[in-house]
């Protein structure tokens, strides 16, 4: 393996990690603040990808479509919160799982009905197409670099919002002692709505920026939801900082693992054996990491303060 390839893999892993962070951030906040387990968070990612596909087709401009998609994703999130989720906050986790499972089934099928079961794709916006020379041998697509940048900006923004604004303070307070926050006269319902809407929009945003890179298909949110769960378990549920560290870690390990494990096994076993075990072992790496975290740090890498 050359250094160039290694660098490309690292960049890809970083990009995947930031994408995971956008999804995991909403998931971990919604769970941390409201104690609400939202399986339908993954479909918000799918919704984002389909929205950008539909709006790019309608308007012809990626940038206009981006704005429209974000607004629509936010509205869909708020609508779901209003119609279904707010009735579930006080229910058992089992009820929450079932109802959000129903929403996944519905939206996946709706995507299939509206856009067909085949995978779709959109072009990268013209402004960001092409690639730039990073080092002598390393060319990297501009779009991917920009998504890394945007992901970092969002992460910093989110961190600052939660650490230094009034809303952020309420979110932190709400995630440890919601009753007390409510008793102090804060409109908890509204706070929940804000957190939920922002979470849904972030997941939708992840879908939007993923659309030009990955395939758009019904059910695309389901697998990434599970990876997002792995991320928030590793990071510590309810903790934004933990979600960030864990997302980058998972992104890097998964991406590097898929190429490195087979090669490493090739040193020990013969090539066909390595090709057989390699991919299976590589896809298990992040779960092994999760299991290890559970054994040694059950609360996660950076647990939220005061979380129980």
């Amino acid at each position: 393996m050359s250094l160039t390839l290694f660098l490309i893999l690292c960049l890809n892993g970083l990009q995947y990690g930031l994408l995971l962070f956008l999804i995991a951030a909403g998931l971990t906040l919604v769970f941390g603040v409201m104690g609400f387990i939202n399986l339908a968070h993954g479909v918000q990612y799918m919704v984002g990808a389909y929205l950008i596909f539909a709006f790019t087709g309608l308007t012809g401009s990626f940038w206009l479509a981006l704005v429209l998609s974000l607004i629509t994703a936010l509205l869909i999130g708020l609508l779901l919160e209003y119609v279904v989720f707010r009735h579930l906050y006080s229910r058992s986790h089992l009820d929450q799982v079932l109802a959000t499972f129903g929403i996944i089934i519905f939206l996946n099928e709706l995507a299939k009905v509206l856009f067909g079961p085949a995978t779709l794709s959109i072009d990268t916006p013209e402004l960001l197409s092409g690639s730039i020379q990073l080092t002598e041998q390393l060319r990297y697509p501009v779009y991917r670099l920009v998504t890394i940048g945007v992901g970092l900006v969002v992460a910093v923004g989110l961190f600052l919002t939660i650490s230094y604004t009034r809303t952020g303070m309420l979110i932190r307070a709400g995630s440890t002692t919601p009753e007390m926050v409510s008793a102090l006269g804060v409109n908890v319902k509204q706070l929940f709505q804000i957190v939920f809407g922002v979470g849904a929009m972030l997941a939708g945003f992840a879908g939007v920026i993923a659309a030009p890179i990955f395939a758009i298909e019904p059910g695309m949110g389901d697998n990434i939801l599970i990876i997002a769960f792995v991320v928030i378990i590793i990071g510590g549920v309810g903790s934004i900082g933990g979600a960030f560290v864990a997302a980058i870690l998972v992104g890097l390990i998964d991406t590097l693992g898929r190429s490195l494990v087979t090669e490493a096994l090739g040193l020990v076993f013969n090539a066909s054996m390595a090709n057989q075990i390699g991919p299976a072992l590589a896809s298990m790496l992040i779960y092994i990491l999760m299991a290890a975290i559970l054994v040694f740090r059950p609360k996660g890498l950076l647990p939220a303060k005061g979380a129980t």
Binding site: G35, I37, N223, I226, F229, A280, M284, L294, P298
Partner: peptide, 29 residues
């Protein structure tokens, strides 16, 4: 491993283990 946790954590971990088993099965070429 999963029973080191409870409640929602247990749910997420069983989900993750289930998915790990699923991917192992898909890789049985």
């Amino acid at each position: 491993l999963a029973l080191r946790t409870s409640g929602v954590y247990f749910l997420m971990i069983t989900l993750a283990f289930g998915q790990m088993i699923y991917f192992t099965l898909t890789s049985l070429a």
